[in-house]
Amino acid sequence: MSELKRGGARKISNTDEPRRLPRTGAWLLYLLPLPMLIGSLIALFKDGKASVALGAGVAFAVVMLAATLIRKGSEIESQALKRKIVRRASTVPYKLLGIATLGVGIFIGALLGSGESLLMSLLLGGVASLGGLLVYGLDPARTAPDAPAIGVTSEEVLEILNEADNKIQAIEAARARIHNVELKDRLRNIITGVREIMGIVEEDPRDLRRARKFLRTYLDGAQRVTEGYADSHKYGQESSELESNFRNVLTTIETVIGEQKQKLLENNLTELDVQIEVLQLQLEKEGV
């Protein structure tokens, strides 16, 4: 048994308070350089200096690139913080690259576009980068501190949770195409149950060892069955036998979810694996 306390090692926070996510927009950087573009166009089409047109145009393009890089970095950070697990956000430090690019863009704009001296241009570029650094911050840490301690990496946990999220969304989409109220309610309860299991795994990623099979293989089966049933509705192929089979499968899924939650709490791995094997066979047999 690991000496780590359950749920204590991998969480950023163990409170249920919603965390404030950073804003992903860099709209200020898209808006402020607009006069540079206008200046470049005026210089280009109204017999102005070519160096001003070129300088302002290049500076505008570089600052737009910087804004896009910073926005991408902020989006990745925001995605990473949605989960309670610390993740390696990105191998590319988008924000840092964006902030450096911003400084270069402002330097070019000041030197060639505005006609400032070299020293003043360097100063303005530096001030812009400092401002960007204070507003948008740096990229989050690239490594999770205690990954080896629990036998799974945070990347692996997040990948499986994101996959499960996608499967749940597919089940929800299929559910919307089913018109039977009772079946819709049962599917909603199933989705809630799966989300609870995901919550347990997110709280303590060591549980992934026990929930991996459920979240990958079994949830995949549940998605296929639900989509198949919803499609049969769409094409008007519904029959009492099909509906009865689907109800049986739903009952099975409900049982498995209940047992999965129970086993996660009890840490009984072997028995659960056997249950899942049995249910997979049943899914194949029902042929929904």
């Binding site: 200020l28 950087l29 402020l32 350089p33 607009l34 006069p35 540079m36 206008i38 200046g39 470049s40 005026i42 210089a43 102005g48 200096k49 001003v52 047109a53 300088g55 302002a56 500076a59 600052v63 911003l102 402002i106 704009g109 000041a110 576009g113 505005s114 006609g115 400032e116 303005l124 570029g125 001030v127 812009a128 400092l130 401002g131 960007g132 650094l133 204070l134 507003v135 948008y136």
Partner: peptide
């Protein structure tokens, strides 16, 4: 950060526009 960003970016930006108009 916002003050520094607005000052530098809009300063250079408006400077470029004025320079283009004056040239």
């Amino acid at each position: 950060g916002v003050v520094l960003l607005v000052m530098s970016v809009s300063g250079v930006s408006c400077g470029s526009l004025l320079n283009a108009v004056s040239s």
